[in-house]
Design a protein around this nucleic acid. Structure first.
Length: 464
DNA sequence: GGAACTCGCCAC
DNA sequence: AAACGTGGCGAGTTCC
């Protein structure tokens, strides 16, 4: 159990005002298209039933049915795990936290059993119907849902959201994104506006450790930290992020190495993630023609030509890069991590830049991650409170309706759009750094907007 | 018959 | 020596 308490009066005031501002957003609520939700839920139910029939027809299912005593429930991870790993005797490649054979999507896909794809498809449809659409119906009042935004639940002093959770609506998977976000609408004659802080956690981390190399990256818009890592990790001299293959490698470096390293992961996990998940290369040895296509040949061709012929080789390669990453590229970041850990072991807590104290039992990674995560969110919270204040003072027709850690979402009258955008930009990027002197990096905000009377699925990036 | 747990999966 | 942070929530299972 972690014991936590706000430290300063500033921290107390931030949360006090934050709760009041959140309450106004909760009261405003979010309009949902109930007809659509009902219709789509029924559609999903039919699709699920049809896939269920397909599944029952398969040899896989019949075998499963024969081998187990009770009736097969393909939704049960317990039953599926037992059938695959005990009855069929498939070797367990990944275990769950409690040591049973895992049946998550990634693990199942590797088994190459076509019938399992049906189960995965059903899982996805059920997830969309039961986790996202259903609660809209359950929670709505007169066609509006009123998600809670809580400030008293998270160990890092971030927020959470519930009933329904507005902070985990599908975004990356295009099919799920469109399906669920099509249910979310602005008020009649309005449009939805979302403003996101760019890389706020990396920037706030830099305010803690002040690593000069990182500060240079953040101050120079032409520099590209992840591109530089691609050059080093994949040995590409002429890196060009407009090339599709280089874009994939950049995402691999960013999400498979740089961010995990910042959170405290290490080279072995990163090697698997980059090579196998992003690069589509196998776990063991690599052969020509394998992996994602490059400008010439494939990723395996490229890596082999540079002497890296297996995951094991790649791991060794990445071990050196990790050492270089912390010892030569970001040494000040690394010593800050050590310093904060030592501080924590002496005092039993660390104090954040936003005036909060994180104490109690923490692991090494927690000590640095908690402070950064909390303070990054507090930037958004400060802006939320200020925009909410201006909204009331100027008697906007527009309303703030929610927040997703580093983003604020509004329901805006078109006549007010330009002004609202201007206020958001000024508050988030200019007023905040003036108010909090410890912010020593430039802040940027990105905005997305839906057309008038169109759903959240139709939002597009706009200039601000 | 409900509480507590596990697992999987969505977001940042 | 160890090895990725924070949540919510639905469904299934196990415990009492």
């Amino acid at each position: 159990m972690t014991s936590i308490h706000p430290l300063t009066i500033d921290a107390y005031n931030l949360f006090h005002k934050g709760i009041l501002a959140f309450a106004r957003a909760e009261r405003a609520g979010i309009r949902v298209d109930l007809d659509y939700v009902t219709r789509k839920s029924e559609e999903l139910t039919n699709k699920i039933a049809s896939l269920e029939e397909d599944l029952r027809d398969t040899k896989f299912y019949k075998k499963w049915n024969k081998m187990t005593e009770k009736e097969v429930n393909y939704n049960s991870s317990t039953q599926l795990s037992n059938f695959l790993y005990k009855e069929l005797g498939i070797k367990i490649k990944k275990e769950t936290a409690s040591g049973k054979g895992a049946t998550d999507k990634e693990t199942l896909q590797k088994l190459n059993i076509p019938e399992i794809d049906i189960i995965l498809e059903i899982r996805k449809l059920k997830k969309n119907r039961d986790t996202y659409l259903k609660p809209f119906i359950r929670e709505q009042v007169n066609g509006y849902v009123h998600p809670f935004f809580n400030l008293n639940t998270v160990v890092t002093f971030r927020s959470s959201s519930s009933n329904p959770n507005f902070q985990n609506i599908p975004k990356r998977d295009v099919e799920s994104m469109q399906l669920v976000r099509r249910a979310i609408y602005p008020r009649l004659g309005h449009q939805l506006l979302e403003a996101d802080y760019n890389s706020i956690e990396v920037k706030i981390a830099a305010c803690y450790h002040k690593d000069p190399t990182m500060l240079k990256y953040l101050h120079n818009p032409k520099s590209d930290m992840h591109g530089d890592m691609v050059k080093q990790i994949f040995m590409i001299d002429d890196f060009d992020k407009t090339l599709p293959s280089h874009k994939i490698l950049r995402d691999a470096a960013k999400n498979g190495f740089v961010f995990p390293e910042f959170y405290g992961d290490y080279y072995k996990n990163c090697a698997v993630s980059m090579a196998c998940v992003w690069g589509q290369l196998p776990q063991g040895g690599w052969k020509e023609g394998q992996g994602i296509p490059m400008v010439e040949g494939t990723l395996a061709d490229h890596m082999i030509s540079h002497g890296i012929k297996s995951l094991k080789h790649f791991e060794n390669h990445l071990e050196k890069i990790e050492k270089d990453f912390w010892e030569n590229r970001f040494p000040v970041y690394a010593t800050w991590k050590d310093r904060w850990w030592t501080l924590y072991t002496k005092k039993g807590y660390v104090d954040s830049l936003t005036g909060f104290r994180c104490g109690g039992v923490m692991r090494k990674n927690d000590v640095t991650n908690y402070s950064i995560q909390g303070s990054a969110f507090h930037c958004l919270l400060w802006a939320f409170i200020e925009i909410d204040r201006i909204m009331q003072e100027e008697k906007w027709d527009s309303r703030i309706i929610g927040q997703i850690h580093d983003a604020i979402i509004l329901d805006v009258h078109p006549d007010e759009l330009e002004h609202v955008k201007q206020v958001i930009h000024r508050v988030t990027c200019e007023d905040l750094p003036k108010a909090w002197k410890w912010i020593i990096v430039p802040l940027e905000i990105e905005m997305d907007c839906s057309p008038v009377d169109k759903s959240w699925a139709e939002k597009k990036k706009i200039e601000n």
